[in-house]
Design a protein around this nucleic acid. Structure first.
Length: 453
RNA sequence: UCCACGGUAGCUCAAUGGCAGAGCAGCGGACUGUUAAUCCGUUGGUUGUAGGUUCAAGUCCUACCCGUGGAGCCA
């Protein structure tokens, strides 16, 4: 199968030469249409095998999905049967056969082989269908991604990211990504990763927000989507060192506008996952019931109202502080949809938050807390648009004024109220998928003590 | 960073201070409808590292390394 540089280019486009896939066979053989497919060739990997004498049941994965391949000794050449019987799990293989609707097969379809070839015989494969510990699986993350559950999670993450982009596009947003190398700290240096930028000090981005504000003053509605880095020594199921964040920013938008946007965005993604990834939710044993109840509007409370609820529930919450994991769970435990909390104390929020005109010690911000214990998935608010106030806040927070001159500049040329938020992709994917830990919501998680693979 | 727990075969785990074992995987075999198939046989060990106590240490002590769960902080 190896081509030489001197070989003539194969005829036809890549699309025309493409082999049939398990997913396309499923579509063609849907009950009520055909019950038997034309013979074809599929390439993929051997994911599992059971044998029953002269009959082999292979679990075959081709990237588009999983399907049972039946190799009957009577139906193939002796060499092909021996290959199918003995080749190691995760070998790359080629199957020639026809697809049939078959109620006895997992997934309702099977491919009956007329030939079976081994393209590459794998070494003994370390991951088995039996139980494994988290540590072992994370050490083998590059292989773990091949398993059925991880396959489903990758597709749900893809669906979530696509649906976010789709929704924002419909709302006339322009995607403009922001830099990962940044020259200064926007929210304190303790949680920043330091790195060298030739002969200068630089940091890895914690948020694209400040840059987003500049872009919003150009195109009105923008968003960035990319990785962010927090050098927090957090060691919980809700934290990653490197995580992806979606950050929309809208000119002329005030707090209520941005709350509506966050609600719409979340509801759209939830409905897309339910609509397009039902099979994946089933593989993950994720009950879609709670997701079906996610509808706008979300209940809204102020920080002070939330504090009152927590006082009644007796979680030990101290007014004036941020909510802990227990508090977030307590606030949402009686609800079937996310909770929006606004008007936090200015003292515990970032320097750029717009104060509430009626109560200057409170800021126009929002946190959206997902139900089922998934915690804060959205945080944001209205930004200060008055230059003098913003300059004062930069000083009060002990930030280097000269590094923020460009940011202050935005308030010198047609300044306007504007608002935005950040949405944590892995938390959202974990919530959709019913994961107990964030680390499976990203292909290669970076946690406190894990940098490989 | 703090608290708790753990590290024994490729994996998941056993083993009063007294012969290091099982299940699964792997390998060989039986079985024409399996669903984590079943059945028979079989390979596989420097018990995380370094030191100490003891006639004897996987087991007790000290230090270190690695990991897991949780807290704080956040998305």
């Amino acid at each position: 199968m190896t081509r030489q540089p001197t070989d003539p280019a194969p005829a036809g486009s890549w699309k025309e030469r493409r082999l049939p896939t398990i997913a396309s066979l499923h579509r063609k053989l849907a009950p009520g249409t055909a019950t038997e497919g034309a013979p074809g060739t599929l390439r993929g990997w051997l994911a599992g095998r059971r044998s029953s004498g002269k009959l082999l049941f292979l679990n075959f994965r081709d990237g588009s999905g999983f399907a049972q391949v039946v190799v009957a000794k009577a139906a193939v050449a002796p060499e092909a049967f021996e290959n199918a019987r003995h080749c190691p799990l995760e070998s790359a293989v080629e199957v020639v056969g026809a697809a049939f609707l078959e109620p006895r097969a997992p997934g309702g379809m099977e491919i009956r082989a007329s030939d079976f070839r081994v393209l590459h015989a794998a070494d003994p494969y370390p991951i088995t269908p039996k139980e494994h510990g988290a540590s072992f699986l994370l050490d083998h993350r590059h292989l773990w991604l091949r398993s059925r559950k991880q396959h489903a999670l990758l597709r749900i993450r893809d669906e979530v990211l696509y649906s976010f982009r789709e929704y924002l596009r419909e709302q006339e947003f322009v995607n403009a990504d922001t830099p990962i190398f940044t020259p200064n700290a926007c929210e304190g240096t303790t949680t920043l990763f330091e790195t060298r930028y030739f002969d200068r000090q630089a940091y890895l981005s914690q948020s694209g927000q400040l840059y987003n504000e500049a872009v919003a003053m150009s195109v009105g509605r923008t968003y960035c989507l990319g990785p962010t880095f927090r050098a927090e020594k957090s060691k919980t199921r809700r934290h990653l060192i490197e995580f992806w964040m979606l950050e929309p920013e809208v000119a002329f938008a005030e707090l209520p506008d941005i709350i509506d946007l966050a609600e719409g965005l979340i509801c759209h993604a939830v409905s897309r996952v339910l609509e397009n990834r039902a099979a994946e939710l089933e593989i993950l044993e994720r009950d879609p019931g709670p997701l079906r109840r996610i509808q706008a509007p979300f209940p809204r409370v102020t920080y002070d109202e939330a504090a009152g609820i927590l006082a009644r529930k007796g979680t030990g919450f101290k007014p004036g502080e941020d909510f802990g994991a227990q508090d977030e769970t307590a606030l949402t435990e009686d609800l079937d949809r996310p909770l929006c909390v606004t008007h936090f104390p200015a003292a515990i929020k970032a320097f750029y938050m717009e104060p509430d005109a009626d109560r200057p010690d409170r800021v126009l911000c929002l946190d959206i807390i997902a139900p089922e214990g998934y915690g804060e998935v959205v945080g944001g608010g209205q930004r200060i648009h008055d230059q003098e106030l913003l300059r004062r806040r930069v000083k009060e927070h002990g930030l280097p004024e000269d590094a923020f001159e460009w940011y202050l500049d935005l308030r010198r040329y047609g300044t306007t109220p504007h608002s935005g938020f950040g949405l944590g992709i892995e938390r959202f994917v974990a919530w959709m998928s019913g994961l107990s830990h964030l680390r499976e919501a990203i292909p290669f998680p970076r946690t406190l003590y894990r940098l490989a693979p």
